[in-house]
Design a protein around this nucleic acid. Structure first.
Lengths: 323, 323
DNA sequence: CTGTTAGCGCGTTCAT
DNA sequence: ATGAACGCGCTAACAG
């Protein structure tokens, strides 16, 4: 039934070792043997068992996407789904699968330590990494880990260039005559959200304008709560810079409910360029986020260990009607 | 460095076999031995290597999500991402990973046959299954496959109850006074899209109304093209029943571009309840689609082989402004 | 109930 | 250049 290396070697009249050398391309082999083995392998549709292969060379069979968050609800978000799916596409050709793991924000770190011990793990992609996780990263993982968002000297990072695009967003709002600009920022414990926040602050300082910052997370509920707080504390706010589209969409709902016209009274800009941004009425001005490309790169880096310094992908403004 | 079963057995003063029996719970073991082994395993943070385990009992290390489609772009869609991510959540605790594979619509079937041969595959979840794939399914996969959409006697199916909800959608449109109702249907080669189509036809027939069907796929581009064709062939159309939200959103764009008011002139109903449906202006009336739940169930079935007949999950209408 | 033995399928030393 | 032998970590069959 199952065609193994043994069958191939037997049919080709060589030993398993020779057949292995030919098929993996490692080690010497005579042109004659090579031809025969390859012919037999093709005819028998032989494919090496990734499991046995992983066992012997200890490379593991799966890439783990590890997500930090307060609860394991973080495993349920659409953004993560895109990351996982994209990683799965780059893993499939190697015979590898993708798994997801939740890294709690606080409490002991059994999950993280477990990743270092698990021999079946070929690589780890960190998502929403915290300083705490970075510090506690098992050394056993060095060389086969990548982080989406923020990294360290020993863990390579991949992300979209949120700093540059956040500056462009501030510039866009200022150019449109807005002067009382609020930012709906990300969670303070999430290092990768600091870049857009710093860019916003720098822009406000350069323009001689006050900062109006409310922290939250990436949900529309957070957008609603954040906008409510903004308009309560600073009723004359004429622009909202949201950390992401979902937050922006939630903020728009509240703005309208409070009698503000968008964009006449309040301009809104998000980030991610989700499908919802195109179809919202009015169309949400936002910026692109190459999630799939970032995830694919992170997976490659985690698997190969080949990191050529931090990788920042560009983001482009998508101008619609809200700003 | 690496703590293996050998270490645990040694430290507990028993043989590997006994330690294995204790930890897997298979086979007899004295209470005394059990206590010692478990204590040592916990202290050493021992976790069995899923790779070695998979090699010996031949259960495989990954679940493959196999998607039929004209091109491998089907691996890039958001819906699939949700399926993969959800499957990954149920696989992770078992030490399994998830992979994705593209099954071409035509040409030879090396991909499908390869899945049957690959010993590293613990289970297969079919997505967008065609009759052709179902017919060519390797018997080696029997008992560890599940299909999202449509199945056969030997491959269990899991899906949302599209027939019932499509009937409810037709009823809603009719109750709203619509009489010239068009359907933007799915690809004819995709069996699982036949249920909503049949429900629509039955409703039209029962109401003594003519059918207006245009086939397409699940993209907004297809929604735009479909709507353009609908309004060209039947300019008096007063309602559009779209196979999914993306199509509905595209159709709405075209309807407005053509001077139709939504919902005054044309009612629109989609399916999926995507985030974009909530934020579109006007809010899109649609129906829920428990994608994550379906995918999780399909993964369970594929992994355990425990299929209690076809599983249909209910869908509920979400009434917003477009119908 | 337990320990010993024998593989699972493959890569990789060693000899030759 | 090739083949024999060993080992990866674990479970299953057997004998005690």
């Amino acid at each position: 039934m199952r065609v193994t290396l043994e069958h191939v070697a037997l049919a080709a009249g060589v030993s398993r070792a020779t057949a292995s050398r030919v098929l993996t391309g490692s080690g010497p082999s005579s042109p004659d043997a090579r031809r025969r083995v390859e012919e037999v392998a093709a005819r028998l549709c032989y494919v090496a068992d990734p499991v046995a292969r992983a066992l012997v060379n200890g490379r593991g069979t799966r890439l783990v996407v590890a997500v930090s968050g307060a609860t394991d609800d973080v495993l349920r978000c659409d953004h993560l789904a895109r990351v996982v799916s994209s990683a799965a596409r780059v893993c499939a050709p190697e015979g590898l699968g993708v798994a997801v793991e939740w890294l709690p924000l606080s409490g002991p770190e059994p999950a993280l330590a477990g990743l270092g011990r698990d021999r079946s793990i070929a690589g780890v992609v960190l998502v929403n990494t915290t300083d705490r996780v970075l510090a506690a990263l098992p050394t056993a993982l060095h060389g086969r880990v990548a982080s989406i968002g923020v990294g360290t000297d020993s863990v390579p990072m991949v992300d979209v260039d949120t700093g540059t695009v956040a500056a462009a967003i501030s510039a866009r709002l200022l150019a449109g005559g807005r002067r009382r600009i609020a930012m709906l920022a990300g969670p303070p414990w999430l290092p990768c959200t600091r870049r857009p926040l710093l860019a916003y602050r720098a822009a406000m300082r350069a323009a001689g304008l006050p900062e109006r910052v409310v922290a939250g997370d990436f949900t529309t509920a957070s957008g609603r709560a954040g906008a409510a707080e903004v308009f309560r504390r600073w009723p004359d706010t004429d622009a909202v810079h949201a950390i992401c589209d979902e937050v922006a969409l939630g903020a728009m709902q509240v703005a309208r409910r409070l009698g503000r016209q968008v964009p006449a009274d309040v301009a809104v800009i998000g980030f991610d360029d989700l499908p919802a941004a195109e179809f919202s009425g009015p169309g949400l001005t936002t910026a692109t986020h190459p999630v799939e490309q970032i995830a694919a790169t992170a997976a490659q880096v985690a698997l190969t260990g080949a990191a050529d310094g931090p990788q920042l992908f560009p983001s482009e403004l998508v101008l619609r009607e809200t700003a």
